[in-house]
Amino acid sequence: MKKGQVTITITIGLMILILTAVIFVQFKTINQTDITSLENMREDELRTEINNYKQKIEEIAKEIEDTDGKIAEYEKVINTDKEASELLVAELEQQNNILGKNDVKGSGVIVTLTDTRAQKISGEDLRALLNELKLAGAEAISINGQRIVYDSYIVDIGSTYISVNGERIVSPYEVKAIGNTTYLESGLSKKQYGYIDTKLEEGKDVVLVRKDNITINKYTADLNFEYAT
């Protein structure tokens, strides 16, 4: 074998070796690129992608801002609504208190009128007492649990019992009144011409008690207008 031929053989073998090695490396790289495509992607491709993502993030941030603004607006509206409704509820409560549709509590006086053998308590006595209490600034009044409201009435039914709000009540008549305790008490117990003195003089049993914590029940019947509008 010639020396030149050996050189040629070795050279060509080496070249083929390099070529196949490179080809296989390339095959392998391309094969595995799918798995780790992101890592091996070209730099500019990655840059473009990053830019795209940045843009998307900016857009989304803008959207979030918009949405936050809307939420703030809605919350404002909700708050005003809430305030308004709270105000309305408070007003309604007050009106119900005035109308007598709620149980109310407060300081006031309890006047107890009891029938004696000599003298019976009449409806007139109770009406006079109510008048006196109202004059003294009573805010809520009840007679034996019957709340006195704007259309309450007190009438004698024969001589046997008294009807308040259509309910019959009997002695002892317990009249509760909430208001300024001092005014109520002094209004009723004026000397000589005061209610209590007058009634005591007539021989009727009248007892007045001051109390800090009186509960007056609500008016239980309906309060509806049928003809007035």
Partner: peptide
């Protein structure tokens, strides 16, 4: 020469399989 080519092919394939991957950035040049 045929023997040299075959041996070169086989050895080259083996080397190529066992060499670590090159970055995708340079695979275009390759």
């Amino acid at each position: 020469i045929a023997i040299a080519i075959i041996v070169g092919c086989i050895l080259g394939a083996l080397i190529g399989m066992n060499v670590p991957n090159i970055s995708y950035t340079y695979s275009g040049y390759l």
